[in-house]
Design a binder for these strands. Structure first.
Lengths: 345, 345
DNA sequence: GTGAAAGCGCTAACAT
DNA sequence: ATGTTAGCGCTTTCAC
């Protein structure tokens, strides 16, 4: 026998296949002695259930998809770990589908649940834009959107306080006396993503104090929010000759790249230039100087997203139950002050 | 019709289900007109194949498992991205299984292929030790081990030059005049992992120059190779009062944590203390100062591991073919000199 | 509390 | 170049 099946276990335990199935799926009404015999047979044969057959027959896989751009970016790597941890607590498995920041990758991820391997999708879009909203509505499976603007009122969303976070970051800099604040991480693409929202928070904070946005202070990073691009964008801003006394970067990698460039140019942080990042990745705590940043509430985001998805899956499973309206959950954000900004007085 | 099946597509195209199957799986001998009619029907119905049924019937899933400790650690996040990219090129999908640095998690990952969802496993062990070798041998599915010591000569391995890398790092420090070199990242657990090997390279380099290992220069990081532990281990070493003029850290996160601690203590890098890391994660290029490190050849490791696994899968698929002996592939390592070490003369 | 029969949607094996 | 038949291993349904 190459690999044992449920029928083999049943034969050995002297019961039917259905009873083995009942034992393994936690059906409660089973005589203790029967359960023991079955489990013993499972052990003796080294039996492992064939999940594929189980999924085919039951129509539910207990697998959910997690579509994120790229795991090498610590924000997404850490987010994936949080989702995986939450999934373990809820006894479901996660199939990670990296979309590579491409439209094509994101469309492929959206097709995946229709192939019936995953029951639903947690999706962090980065390339789709407002004109793609229709792709996200009227899907025949549960979908939860993560971490970006609210595209649509017909889909569950879990987002962070993007605008408020960027606003809080900018206000901190204003409070400590900065007046020439660069924004690092601008995108030309109108992807309705974090960039647009974080820029909005930056702009609002400036305008509240009667300051205008100076185009020379905008650092562009269309090739992705990596450190290299943070350094490059910072260099581009400094090369215009404009005066800079503060930096709001749209994520921590950009901030760390910008800090690197400031260091190369002999500028001291926070004395000459104060810097704030966004995301609170592990790196932010151990850079020199350590980085003031916005904690977006990653754990909360992961946990809430998963629970929303599981709730929708239950609704699908129990027809007749009233379908709840779409949920918008905004996780708590928190400004974490560290050494890259002077203390507020 | 809630969700169309192959039979529905067949009916619409006026062919049999088998022909639809042939078209979708790339079987070549099909009349062009037939193919077109089938694809048109697929399009019209919005049909997506049920991968679960396909796997159950064919016995091959086209999915491979990737078992790594934690995606939030940039080394593993970047490694996962490389494996995923290689898999995309080879047209297979990857199910990532984080093991959380636990024995239990690693044992669970090893059971996964027997549940028939994944065809084989690329496994980066971190908690198993030499006494667990038997668990890796005589498995009934293909397994490729990643990035650690050679446990067993009966399993395919893809490793980096751990000993040689640590040796090159240490020799660089010796060459630039360091004599009191700390090693950061020691583990008490005998997990036959990178720690042991990298320490061996460190020790060999010292002994080649007639220097002994000084226990006070060993920084322990049993809670994981994170920045926090690098900072803590560096602090512990400095607190012994021992003189330090160089640091070899067993990964980049530890190195960056150690650099942070050195900065806090007012020590200048590389003037007072020179620092070398290990892994060449993206961070290493943009720290201040940028970090000299060992590039382990991650892309090569990912690509070779995947190809080995796919080759084994082919062997399983074509019985009668002679089974190749286990392969040990050691990827090229490279010392990347940056600002955290003085130039060699 | 347990079993028998049917069938989820696909592809292997074979036929034509 | 395409169709027919059977069955992958499990769970649903229903019987007792």
């Amino acid at each position: 026998m190459v690999v044992p099946t449920m029928a083999d276990v049943a034969r050995r335990a002297g019961v039917s296949a259905k009873t083995v199935s009942n034992v393994l799926s936690g059906y409660p009404y089973i005589r203790e002695s029967t359960r023991e015999r079955v489990l013993a047979a499972v052990d003796e044969l080294g039996y492992e259930i064939n999940v594929t057959a189980r999924i085919l027959r039951s129509g539910r896989s207990g697998l959910i998809g997690l579509a994120v751009p790229e795991l090498g970016q610590p924000y997404f790597g850490e987010l994936a770990d949080e989702v995986l941890a939450a999934a373990r607590r809820r006894d479901v498995q996660v199939l990670i589908e990296p979309t590579g920041f491409t439209r094509e990758g994101e469309l492929a991820a959206l097709r995946e649940p229709r192939r019936r391997l995953v029951d639903g999708l947690v999706f962090s879009p980065a390339a789709l834009d407002q004109s793609d909203v229709h792709l996200l509505e009227n899907l025949d499976y549960p979908l939860v959107l993560l971490g970006e603007q609210v595209f649509s009122t017909h889909v569950d969303h879990v987002t962070m306080h993007n605008v408020e976070g960027a606003r809080a970051a900018t206000e901190l800099l204003l409070d400590v006396g900065c007046r020439r604040i660069a924004a690092i991480g601008m995108l030309h693409a109108r992807t309705a993503g974090s960039a647009t929202l974080r820029f909005q928070g930056y702009r609002e904070a400036l305008e509240d104090r009667g300051l205008a946005v100076d185009d020379r202070l905008l650092g562009w990073a269309d090739d992705g929010w990596h450190r290299a691009n943070g350094a490059r964008a910072m260099a581009a801003v400094l090369d215009t000759g404009v005066e800079v006394d503060g930096v709001v970067a749209f994520n921590d990698a950009l901030a760390l790249g910008a800090m690197h460039e400031l260091g190369v140019r002999g500028l001291s942080i926070p004395r000459d230039v104060a810097v704030v990042g966004f995301d609170d990745v592990e790196d932010a705590r151990y850079s020199v100087p350590s980085l003031t940043t916005i904690d977006p509430g990653r754990r909360e985001i992961a946990q809430v997203a998963l629970d929303l998805l599981l709730r929708r899956l239950d609704e699908v499973g129990s027809p007749g139950g009233s379908v709840r309206p779409p949920v918008l959950h905004v996780a708590d954000m928190r400004l974490v002050e560290r050494e890259s900004t002077p203390r507020r007085v």
